[in-house]
Design a protein around this nucleic acid. Structure first.
Length: 668
DNA sequence: CAGCAGGGCGTTTTT
DNA sequence: CGCCCTGCTG
């Protein structure tokens, strides 16, 4: 199987708790996948008894593929591999009734959450200036990740009665709408075990072997869930690396991995310290940076491979220059090393840094793929139509309703909406039910009632069609047409044919996404609910085959690069205030930033570039930048400073001089 | 109720 | 610099 001794121990550990401390590039996925295959093929454990949990859909997909690649056909049947969130949805789908929700709940995304919180705060007459809704959203999310429920408990936890009150209203509204938000998936799943321990224990008893990836990133809720799943056995294998913990800001609790041995007595600990990914220089550079962290278990990653090229540091004058330098380097590598675009990745701290690259790549015809970033399902056209679908799936989804009630314009304006809302409040009814029953609303005229009637008929008619049709795609096309949405797009575009085409293309992508879903054999039943659930758990739109078929440069943030590897990696914007980010410096969380930088560095297999710009524009204003402190922390023996002019046409004399001074100062 | 213009504000990271 | 939201006018 080609495993080293430690990997082999991990892969062939039979029963009981197992902690695998796996450094970057040490082959942890290989160990997990081999272990699953070993359990099934050699130990005759049924696939049905195995549950593997990951953080991202991508990781889940990869793991599944690799496991099935190791197994003879069909022998892995029943194996569960999924994200924590997807797994929780599965539990909730069948058991959420225990918590007083109805079975066919919808899932809120973060923008829906913001809307609702803003509405609630307005209702409560809270000044949005003093308490910004995004802060509130973040606090509520935090509370849920820590398993803090609304009520007295929350008030103490927040130390703020107002926040607790918003939380209470928010949560009861969600429940009233039969909607759960992202954080609820975890919290409510844990609640299931609290309210019906025995029933749930029975329900999950089929899973006798647990495997958890990226354990260092688990939060309280995920930890508790794992405890619930191991009530009747202790076959839990977790893999993690404290140096790659980069989600503390989202509630990840590093003590979960630090305390694992205490939590699960009899734990076997395995350390994977041999790196198979990067050359010696890259590894040494990364090691020297991470060594500056004090809060770490400490490990010594080593490689038996070649030293390779030094880490190349490229100073540039501004973000345009930075992009041009990288592009020129990309073209050189392609020419000289005969590497493909897909071998290269550009990594940065913040999403908005993609801009100069996207512009330049588009101009030069270089294929690229942005991971994350502005999401497909956040696109206006797509989101509008998805809201139609959401409303048809759940008439009580008020956020969806309010979004499309007058889109396209159908003469139901703010006045009318206000009347509906007031009537609903007075009679404690749902907005949509008020609309269905508009004849009885005495505050509006017949014409308005008629318009509302037309809208409701549309919803009812197509909801029925969606649920009965063999394929939803033609029905959705019909909705776009019959609702007048298409016409509206045409009208909005004015004479701009290009604009109209663009929006059409987005809608086409949406149809394709539905089609892909309906063709997915992994899904048992294909219906509207299943589709909405799937897309709500999807972070990116990059549907399976898409990423593979194109030879493209990958652009992504440091957070989304975790778990990936590329022969050539460019870390861009390595400036003080960017990485480490100003907010983190102020919050005193530079160590997490260092880990983030470490994660980015260790993605590189063959060659690593670090670039920084002396000047960067933000909000249209430009400001001076200094290279990141992390550059100073790299062992000078493994880096090489590339002079600004060498990759392309000569730059300003000032910059070259500044660069020379810096090189002398740093002894580079 | 719809359309337009101008002002204000934001970008840390994501399942 | 752009986007979104608001407020004013037709």
């Amino acid at each position: 199987m080609g495993l080293n001794p430690q990997q082999l121990v991990g892969a062939t550990h039979r029963d009981g708790p197992l902690l695998i401390l796996a450094g970057a590039g040490s082959g942890k996925t290989k160990v997990i996948t081999t272990r699953i295959a070993w359990l099934i093929a050699e130990q005759h454990v049924s696939g049905r008894s195995i549950l593997a949990l990951t953080f991202t859909n991508k990781a889940a997909r990869e793991m599944k593929e690799r496991v099935f690649g190791l197994l003879p056909k069909k022998s892995g049947k029943g194996l569960t591999v999924g994200t924590f969130h997807a797994f929780c949805v599965q539990l909730l789908r069948s058991k959420i009734g225990l918590l007083g929700y109805r079975e066919k709940f919808s899932i809120f995304d973060s923008s829906d959450r913001m809307h609702l919180i803003t509405d609630i705060m307005k209702d409560l007459k809270i000044d949005l200036e003093i308490l910004p809704p995004d802060k509130v959203a973040w606090k509520i999310s935090d509370a849920k990740n820590a398993l803090i429920h609304p009520g007295r408990e929350a008030e103490e936890w927040f130390g703020d009665a107002l926040l607790a009150s918003i939380y209470r209203h928010y949560q009861s509204t969600l429940k009233g709408f039969n909607i759960v938000d992202f954080d609820d998936l975890l919290m409510l799943a844990v609640d299931l075990f609290a309210v019906a321990g025995e029933e749930m224990a029975l329900h999950v008893s089929r899973w006798r072997y647990l495997l958890v990836d990226e354990y260092q990133d688990t939060n309280q809720a995920q930890y508790k869930l794992l405890r619930c799943l191991t009530r009747d056995h202790d076959n839990i294998c977790v893999v993690g690396d404290d140096d790659q913990s980069i989600y503390a800001w989202r509630g990840a609790d590093i003590s979960n991995i630090l305390n694992f041995e205490k939590d699960f007595p009899g734990t076997v600990v395995i350390r994977l310290e041999q790196n198979y990914r990067s050359t010696g220089n890259i590894l040494r550079a990364a090691n020297s940076v991470i060594a500056h962290n004090t809060a770490r278990k400490g490990k010594n990653l080593w490689t038996s491979g070649v030293n390779g090229d030094p880490v190349r540091i490229i100073p540039t004058s501004d973000e345009t220059d930075e992009a041009e330098s990288i592009v020129s380097e990309i073209l050189t590598i392609r020419r000289e090393d005969r590497a493909s675009f897909a071998d290269m990745a550009i990594v940065f701290r913040t999403n908005f840094q993609t801009r100069p690259f996207e512009e330049l790549f588009a101009a030069q015809g270089i294929p690229y793929e942005v991971i994350g970033g502005t999401k497909f399902f956040d696109r206006r056209e797509v989101k509008d139509i998805v809201c139609y679908l959401r409303l048809m799936a759940n008439r009580h989804d008020e956020i969806a309703l309010l979004r499309i009630i007058n889109r396209p314009k159908r003469g139901i304006g703010t006045q009318t909406i206000e009347k509906i809302v007031q009537w609903a409040e007075k009679h404690t009814m749902h907005l949509y039910d008020v609309m269905l029953d508009a004849d009885h609303v005495d505050t509006m005229d017949d014409n308005t009632r008629y318009k509302i009637g037309v809208f409701c008929e549309l919803v009812e008619e197509y909801a029925k069609k969606l649920l009965s049709a063999r394929s939803m795609v033609p029905v959705v096309r019909e909705i776009v047409h019959a609702s007048g949405y298409e016409e509206e797009l045409l009208r909005e575009a004015g004479g701009d044919a290009d604009k109209f085409q663009k929006s059409q293309r987005w809608l086409q992508e949406l149809y394709t996404s539905i089609q892909l879903y309906e063709a997915d054999e992994d899904v048992e039943r294909h219906d509207l609910f299943g589709y909405l659930e799937r897309i709500s758990l999807l972070v990116d739109d990059k549907s399976e085959d898409k990423e593979r078929r194109r030879d493209a440069v990958t652009l992504m943030t440091m957070h989304s690069c975790k778990g990936l590897e590329f022969p050539y990696v460019f870390v861009s914007g390595v400036e003080e205030g960017n990485i480490p980010h100003t907010h983190s410096i102020e919050a005193g969380t530079v160590e997490e930033e260092r880990r983030l930088f470490y994660v980015a560095m260790t993605r590189a297999m063959k060659r690593l570039y670090l670039t920084w710009a002396a000047e960067r524009r933000r909000y249209g204003e430009s400001s001076d930048c200094e290279p990141s402190r992390f550059i100073d922390e790299i062992d000078p023996a493994c880096i090489e400073w590339i002079s600004p002019g060498s990759t392309r046409s000569a730059e300003s004399v000032d910059l070259v001089e500044a660069f020379e001074r810096m090189r002398q100062q740093r002894g580079g």
